[in-house]
Structures are given as C-alpha cells and as structure tokens.
Design a protein around this nucleic acid. Structure first.
Length: 488
RNA sequence: GGUACCUUGGCCGAGUGGUUAGGCGGUGGUCUGCAAAACCAUGUACGGCAGUUCGAAUCUGCCAGGUACCUCCA
C-alpha cells in the first residue's frame, strides 16, 4: 500500500518514496532548551514519534535525528537580540551549559513519560560549531552571503534572483519586503529580510567561538541545515517540525542548503499544527502556557485536575496532526475515559471465552488501521477502529459474538501492534500491576467470601466487603459466577 | 496592512459530491439482589446567503465570525 503524506512544500498529499529504500532519513526540529517543556512540545514529540514508529513498522530502517538547540536562538531578530540560553543563564547566574543540561534532562524526562522514543541521534548545536563555520564559508563562496563587521548575513535579495525564497511558506518576496520594518541606521544588514549566519559576539556575550570572521556564534537557522545533512546526507527524506517554524526557520533552511550545496536537502516537509487553549494559541505572552510538569501534577490554574501522560498522548492522537487541537478540561477528561475503555478492552482479551470458530473478522480491523495510517498518518481513524475492536470484545464478553483461539491472538496482536506499538499507548501500568499482584491473594480471599455471602443472600456482608474495598481504592465488578477487580 | 487557514450535533474531533466516523456526556433499555462494568438503542450536525449540479456539509462566489504567520515559539 502506498503511504501518503502531506508535503508542506507542494501543498498536497504525495506518495512517500524514500530516496534510498529501505533507509529513511528523518530530521525533526527539537526544543530550544531554555525553559520547561510544554504541551506544544508534547504534540510535536508525539506526532513525530508516531511517524517514526509507523515507518519502522512498515519495514523501513529509519534514522531519526532530532536536535537540541542550545546556542544561536535569539530573543528576537534585532541586531541586539540576546541568546535565549545565555539570557536564562545570566538571569540565574549559572553557566549556559547548566541551563542547557537542566532543561534537556527535563525535556527527556517529560518525553519519556509520554512514551516518546528517543531519536537515534540527538545532536546539539553547540557541538557542531566547526561544521557550521564550514557551511557559512560555503554560502559565502556561493555568493549568497556577505560579511559586515565580523558578522555574516544571508543575502536574501540576491538569492531570490535565482531561487524561490518563500516557496515553503507560500510567501512572495515582494510582500515580505513591503511588510518588514525599516532597518535601523546601525544595522549591519543590507536588507531587512537578510538573516544572520554568523554573528560577532559583543563583549558581554559569553557563548562564543573563533571563526574566520570574528569570535562569535552561529545563527539559529544554520544548525538544522548543518546537522540534518551531516547525519542524513545532502539530500534526505523527511524534515518535520511545528508549523510555527515554517517561516522563517524552515524557509531559511531551504535557502541555506540550496545556497551551500546547489540543491535542496529535504524531500518531504511535514508540519504539525498548534495546540490552542480556549481557541487561542498557547504562548508565553498570553499567560495560557501549560508545562508538562504542571499538566502531570495538575498545578496550573486552568487545570481542574492532574492528567496522566498517557491521557495527554491519547488526547493528542485523537486529532489529526495537521489540525489545531483545542485544549480543555472537558476534552481531556473525555480522553481519559476513552483511553480507560480501550485499556480495559485490551486486558479483557485474555479472559475471553474461546469458541470453536470465530464470528468476527479481525484482519479487517488491521487492514483499516493500516489504511488510516497510510493516509497521512490519520491516527484518529486508527483510534476509531480500535474502539470498534473494543466493542467486539464487549460483545464477546456478553456472548453475542464468538471468537476462536487464533482470533483471540489476532485481536491481541492488533492492539499490541497499533495501540501500543504505533500509537505508543502504554497500557502497562507497571507499578500498579505490581501492587495488584501482591494484593491478589488477599483481595481474592475477601471476594471469595463475598461470593459465598451472595449465594447465601447475605447481601449486607457482600456489600460491606465491596464498600470497604472501594474505600481503599479497589473497585469490584461482578461477573457471571465470579468477579473482577482493579485498583483505581 | 499583507498572506494563509479555519467555522461539523452539549463538548472534543474525523470525513467528504449521493451510504452511521469515533470518543466523552445525556436519555431509555439489557444484565445485576443492588451497583459497577459491559452491551444495545437513541442525536438526521456540518457559520450565513447565493450559485454550479440530478444531488453539496463537501465545489465556486460573497458575507459574518475566529485563528495563525509576517518578531521568539512545537
């Protein structure tokens, strides 16, 4: 089956054909590590995690590179913009690298909790200064950059004469020019659209490296062009990131790579959309910014409760990655319940009664899941099919449908492949299961007694046992001639 | 101001020229000693106005509302 992805560059769904099958190179813009990871990071992390898992599932050998931006990302594009990491370091009176490692660890911790797999390579910009200097030189050599006072800028106007600057973001250079503010008289740039490839460090700027032009630091856009091609080759398959990076970041990447090597690097640009809160984009300036730690702990003022990482993951995957996703407590609570239902269905599979033959076609569910994933990674449809499967499981439990031993295995395998393997929904509540195992003899004993009481119509005792267990967090559900229980 | 995009039932969210997306919630029911869980049934939704069409929520135009990008952001 042909896999289709929406390519931002061509504005349409395209068949995915890797350059060197079975190998696939995939680069995704990672975080700038100067602050807590938030819901937006979760979405990008999860979306591309599912893409990564899916490509591997279909048999590709994927090299997944996701960078850590730890230098060069300025507060703004003005000439006096301060490096984000350096600023944070200054404010907290620590080394920039302390900031970098602190937030990188936090990011990893949060992503691990969301069951986001680590990329194969996670390069840091600060570890690739020589390569970045080399690329600046290449761009200078190609004539698409100029040096002013120790800084090097990309010459957008000149580049646009030969190439299409704005092709990715759908912008026209004339519009961009008419919309940019006037250059200040002190500016080193020839044109307001030009962006920095290398900047000379002011004397208070602490993150600095030697280069042929000055002691300074690389421009933000450069690192991605450099590190993607270093690890994936001059040309590679997929470049991902949030839609907010489309312009200028990714547009500049295209320009840089084209200028430096005479051709574009990226074949498929894939962008995830934003998360909104009450219809508005999440942003620091808007004060509606929710970090993942706050979300997991329920400590932000807009949160009615804490939410499990898996609930967040499920919530995000219930929407297609290219649409905006609106956050609300109601929506997250609904997601939590839906996920619980799927989890219960999964655990019920083992206990299903086996019949001679199956009245169900499990392969049809598998096929539909495959089809949905191949159609631009349509995770909400996959989830809808998993709910169909959950429905079947309920019907088998109630004796309305029959399933054979092999059917049962197929059902289990479907959940494991699609829900757990590709969507990355981690059904295993490890700690809880351990407790559950330890308590099993005790709880079973009580429930055996309760069963006997029920037979003797001693409902007072039966209810007392159920109520007491519930008070200690154990929920009992009666089955025909038996019971189920779980720790809530 | 420029450029894009969006508007689906109480909420979240797929989809798309003609057959029920799905989830959560609500209501009724089955099961149960009672519950819980599960299952069944139930909502004829697609911003407004025109147009194209045998037929549009799906295409076109206009209008209204919203959002994003153009500055840092996943």
């Amino acid at each position: 089956m042909a896999i289709k992805f929406y390519n931002t560059l061509t504005h349409k769904k395209e068949d995915f054909e890797p350059l060197n099958p079975p190998h696939v190179g995939m680069y995704v813009c990672g975080p700038t590590v100067y602050g807590d990871a938030h819901l937006g990071h979760a979405r990008a992390g999860i979306v591309f995690d599912v893409l990564y898992r899916y490509l591997k599932h279909t048999g590709y050998k994927v090299r997944y590179v996701r960078n850590i931006t730890d230098v060069g990302h300025l507060e703004n594009d003005a000439d006096d913009g301060e490096d984000k990491v350096a600023k944070k370091a200054r404010l907290e009176s620590v080394e920039p690298m302390e900031i970098v490692f602190h937030y990188m660890r936090l990011y990893h911790k949060n992503m691990d909790a969301l069951n986001v797999l680590r990329p194969d390579i996670e390069p840091q910009a600060s570890g690739h200064i020589p390569e970045q200097i080399e690329m600046v030189q290449d761009i200078l050599d190609s004539g698409y950059a100029y040096e002013t006072n120790g800084s090097v800028y990309f010459d957008v106007e000149n580049y646009a004469k030969q190439h299409d600057y704005g092709k990715l973001s759908g912008r026209k250079i004339e519009d961009l020019q008419s919309n940019t503010r006037e250059l200040s008289s002190q500016s080193e740039k020839r044109n307001a659209l030009d962006f920095a490839l290398w900047k000379k460090a002011s004397h208070q700027h602490i993150m600095r490296w030697k280069s042929p032009w000055s002691v300074g630091f690389p421009g933000w856009h450069l690192e991605c062009s450099v590190m993607s091609t270093k690890y994936l080759g001059d040309e590679f398959d997929i470049h991902g990131g949030g839609m907010d990076l489309l312009f200028p970041h990714h547009e500049c990447e295209i320009a840089q790579s084209t200028a430096a090597q005479g051709k574009e690097s990226v074949r498929y640009w894939i962008h995830n959309n934003m998360i909104t809160i009450n219809g508005q984009k999440m942003g620091k300036s808007l004060g509606n910014f929710i970090t993942l730690d706050e979300l997991f702990a329920g400590t932000h003022k807009v949160l009615e409760q804490a939410y499990e990482p898996m609930t967040i993951r499920f919530f995000i995957l219930q929407a297609h990655y290219r649409g905006t996703l609106n956050f609300s407590n109601e929506a997250l609570q609904a997601a939590a319940k839906g996920l619980k239902r799927l989890t219960r269905a999964y655990y019920a599979i083992n206990k299903l009664p086996v019949s001679e033959k199956s009245s169900l076609d499990i392969t049809a569910i598998r096929d539909k899941c495959e089809e949905a994933l191949a159609d631009d990674l349509n995770t909400p449809i996959v989830i809808a099919h998993l709910f169909d499967a959950a429905n079947l499981i309920g019907n088998i439990q109630n004796g309305k449908e029959q399933i054979s031993g092999t059917g049962k295995l197929a059902l289990k395998e479907t959940f494991e492949t699609y829900a757990a393997g590709i969507l990355g929904l981690d059904f295993e509540e490890k700690e809880q299961n351990k407790t559950q195992d330890k308590l099993k003899p005790v709880v079973d004993l009580l429930l055996d007694i309760r069963l006997q009481s029920k037979k003797n119509k001693d409902f007072a005792t039966a209810d007392k046992i159920r109520d007491e267990l519930k008070a200690s967090g154990i929920v009992v559900r009666d089955r025909k001639d038996g019971y189920d229980w779980e720790i809530e």
